[in-house]
Simulated scan of single mutants.
Amino acid sequence: MKSYGQYCGLARSLDTVGDRWNLLIVRQLLIGPARYGDLRAGLPGLATNLLADRLRDLETAGVVRRQVADAGSAVAYALTPWGSELREPVEALIRWATPLMVEGPGDDRFDPAWLHVALPALLRDRPRSRRTVTLGLDVDGALLRLRVGRAGIEVETGDGDSDSDGGDGGRTVDATLRTSAHLLLGLAAGALTIADAQAWGAVDIEGDTDAVHRVLGG
């Protein structure tokens, strides 16, 4: 890796993670440990040889480590404890990029898995009710579950069926929100309100509407 040759925290940080694709690899590993093939799938446009080079550099720097995957002897990549501390600057960059997201995706690719990092970043400073609220999200056909409470913000893959009977081991949702990734990110960032999205016919809510407002405002 090339160095800026400057005794400055920012310069040395960029020496380590500033190369093209490095922070996007970190984004993928903030979602969770991943095998090499999973990283390739989550990083469209990244050549396999360049991914191997970047992983090797990050491992040498102490940002990434290899471990045994859950399924057996296969290798998975994970962030080290020090590497995991990149969550804060990554989330700050996501919030900073809000004006850049307003124009929509255009021809850019989108993976719903990226919402696992984006939604906690955008919702971090929102007021939270004492009661945990769970929303089912149907984002362009991809099903996720967003749980927001005093303990924190979690995003997981799951169905978006609303259900208030308390079954399913507490994994039911208070409401289901169906919309596009563009609109959901705008709502989470506070760039538009639910009322606006409903007026445009761009969002559909099934279940406890108040629960949606408690999480996303507006």
Rank of each mutant, 00 (worst) to 15 (best):
P44F: 00
P120E: 06
W114L: 09
G167Y: 03
D53W: 13
T60D: 11
D174A: 10
G217E: 09
V102D: 11
A142H: 13
A47V: 07
L192I: 04
L177H: 01
L119F: 01
R54Y: 08
R87Y: 13
V26Q: 03
L55Y: 10
R128I: 03
A191L: 09
T209W: 00
S164Y: 00
P127F: 04
Y7F: 14
R20W: 09
T209P: 00
T80N: 03
L123I: 06
V155L: 13
T60Y: 09
Q67G: 10
A113P: 00
S3T: 12
L46C: 10
L183D: 15
A118P: 01
G72R: 03
A78D: 11
R12V: 04
A92Y: 13
D108E: 14
P44L: 02
R150G: 10
P33H: 06
T172V: 13
G32Q: 05
R109I: 02
C8I: 00
T132D: 10
A142M: 07
D108A: 15
G104V: 12
T80S: 10
L30K: 01
I194Y: 05
L43Y: 03
T134P: 03
L115R: 10
A113N: 03
D107K: 14
R54W: 11
L55K: 07
D111Q: 10
F110T: 04
I94W: 08
R54E: 09
V64C: 05
I153Q: 07
F110S: 01
G190M: 05
G9L: 14
R20E: 15
L55P: 02
L192F: 13
T98E: 14
S13I: 11
L39I: 02
L23G: 09
D108L: 15
E206K: 11
S180F: 01
G149Y: 06
R130G: 12
W21M: 02
D107V: 12
G136P: 05
R12I: 01
H213C: 07
M101A: 12
G170Q: 04
I94R: 01
P81S: 05
G42Y: 05
R20V: 13
G149F: 08
V90L: 02
G5F: 09
T179M: 02
L50Y: 10
R54H: 12
L24V: 11
D125W: 07
G166R: 04
A34N: 04
G207R: 02
L143N: 11
L185E: 08
L86S: 02
R35P: 00
T176Q: 12
G141N: 06
I31F: 00
T209D: 12
G170A: 06
R35T: 13
V17D: 03
